[in-house]
């Protein structure tokens, strides 16, 4: 599996291999992997994280990201500076989504919507950034937002492809194929503080607890 792990962690390199080599490598890895199937007891994950895609398990990483100076477009069609939007003293919750995403984005957005109701008394800013800007026009984002009853404190952003990808890369959330996009939620208590990155799908109670926990953490 080493080959697989190594190359998947370096998507650029993986791509540069060219399709036939890639297919061959995948095939080799797959065969190696299948050969290992019967010995399924030894689950060892390289990273210290719980399996994702399960409501009970998600991983937490605290890091800092340099927010790029880009101008994006919100669901009303107005331009917004991402830095300005994030320069607030209130907590920010941020996710990457796209409107035609089937499995995980509806779940991520529904969790945002549910948590938002829970957090109604608090001032929090929610931001959903599309990773499919060529399809997700402001109108489509508006339509998507209304499906989740998104109010004024929940921003939906699109923009130029290059700018969006810059943001994705800055948050370590870039995938060559958007369909490989993984569920991540970023929390930040206030401007200038590090981010808490949650990987995996959460329940509303878990998201609220994470948010409140970091809110009440001592300086």
């Amino acid at each position: 599996m080493w080959l697989f792990t190594r190359f998947t962690s370096q998507p650029g390199r993986w791509r540069r291999l060219g399709a036939p080599v890639r297919a061959g490598a995948l095939l080799l890895c797959t065969l190696a992997f299948l050969a290992a199937v019967p010995s399924q007891h030894q689950h060892h994950h390289h990273q210290q994280q719980h399996p994702m895609g399960s409501g009970e398990h998600y991983s937490r990483v605290r890091t800092s990201y340099r927010v790029p100076d880009v101008t994006l477009v919100d669901r009303t069609g107005a331009t917004v500076s991402l830095r300005k939007l994030l320069e607030v003293d209130e907590p920010v919750l941020l996710q990457f989504i796209f409107t035609t995403c089937t499995t995980i984005c509806p779940a991520m957005s529904a969790t945002f919507a549910a948590a938002r109701q829970e957090l109604a008394g608090d001032r929090v800013r929610m931001i959903s950034i599309t990773i499919d800007p060529h399809h997700d026009t402001p109108e489509r984002l508006q339509d998507y937002a209304s499906r989740y009853g998104a109010g004024p404190g929940w921003f939906f952003l699109t923009g130029e492809l290059d700018d969006i990808q810059t943001v994705q890369k800055a948050f370590d959330a870039f995938w060559v194929n958007k369909m490989q996009h993984q569920p991540r939620t970023y929390l930040r208590r206030s401007s200038g503080e590090p981010w808490l990155r949650l990987s995996g799908l959460l329940s509303s109670a878990q998201l609220v607890a994470e948010q409140e926990h970091q809110e009440h953490q001592a300086e």
């Binding site: 994702m52 499995t103 509806p106 779940a107 969790t111 369909m179 996009h181 329940s203």
Partner: peptide
């Protein structure tokens, strides 16, 4: 999380084909 079938119909995850999906590692 309470949801409505307009976003959470079976086809949205298991797809129209019924063959399922593997989006986002799920």
């Amino acid at each position: 999380v309470e949801v409505r079938g307009s976003q959470f119909h079976c086809a949205s995850c298991h797809r129209r084909s019924g063959f399922g999906s593997s989006e986002g590692g799920v």
